[in-house]
Design a protein around this nucleic acid. Structure first.
Ligand SMILES: [Mn+2]
Ligand SMILES: [Mn+2]
Ligand SMILES: [Zn+2]
Ligand SMILES: [Zn+2]
Lengths: 146, 146
DNA sequence: TGAGCAAATGCAATATAGTTGCATTTACCG
DNA sequence: CGGTAAATGCAACTATATTGCATTTGCTCA
């Protein structure tokens, strides 16, 4: 993620103006292949131009509410943020390494989840399903064995 | 959860002594049918006997590390804690209501997740898979429509 | 029984992530 | 240009969790 996404278009479609900060936040999230923490995003955006921490949080809240980005949980404190599922990005599970704390995207087909039955029977309203696999990533596993 | 679990036995099996605090924490978690926040657990244990907040956190860390309880994430800050999957409790997904913030257990079969393929192909080590359904619970949905 | 010792607990301070209130700046619109 | 609303900055604050160190508890063995 993501050469395929026109962030200006995405923002406009959600009724949001394209500010430089919003664009930089989206770029920071999109240019890495894995979700970032708010702190990471703050740091990356700050490389381009000074920005306030609070502004980053407000933009993240806004973009998440508009379903442009997706808030992901982990076993650490604090959320991670990735581009939300859209026409270019199928929903997919993530892998959280309990050793190095990195969150990685798994391929959409790697873990089949059938939500059909639940959607038909659940008495409330289902908005999304988050699947997170926890364990040791390849790197951390190798380092352990040496 | 849970009349079926002998907490003393479970603690002993993990090589842990049964202190009153550990027992109360386990009971607090087990006697509700849904996972609780650290704050909730602190409050419930405090009904029996004064306990320090830090002690609750330390017990939760210890029990989670020993796989007696399970740390669950949500979109709120802070984790929830439930009894970990064991012979009496099959692993199961949870439902998080974004309106009232309550986390509920879903039945083990309600959402089929096939981890077989991933376990065979993933280059790291998989410890657990957390599935969380987010949305509006029945209560909150009804209140909205009135 | 009772010292000796390690584990468990308490308490105060600190850390981390996120939020709030309000002032200032920016950008669109007539 | 001047008016207005949205966006941003800044300081203070909240919620949750963690750390360092002192004290208490409870097992073990003399
Ligand atoms: Mn992803
Ligand atoms: Mn449960
Ligand atoms: Zn790792
Ligand atoms: Zn609800």
């Amino acid at each position: 993620m993501c050469q395929d996404c026109d962030y200006h278009k995405i923002l406009a479609a959600a009724g949001l103006e394209t500010t430089r900060n919003r664009l930089h936040v989206l770029e920071a999230i999109g240019e890495r292949g894995f979700p970032l923490s708010a702190g990471d995003i703050y740091a990356r955006v700050g490389l381009h131009r000074p920005i306030n921490r609070v502004t980053v949080y407000r933009i993240l809240d806004l973009l998440a509410e508009k379903n442009i980005i997706e808030r992901l949980s982990s076993l650490k404190r604090g959320s991670y943020y990735g581009l939300a599922p859209n026409e270019n990005h199928a929903p997919h599970p993530h892998f959280y390494c309990t050793s190095c704390g990195r969150l990685d995207c798994l391929s959409p087909g790697s873990l089949a989840v059938d939500t059909e039955h639940l959607r038909n029977t659940f008495p409330g309203e289902i908005e999304r399903v988050e699947v997170r696999v926890d364990g040791l990533c390849q790197n951390c596993l190798q380092q352990k064995s040496t």
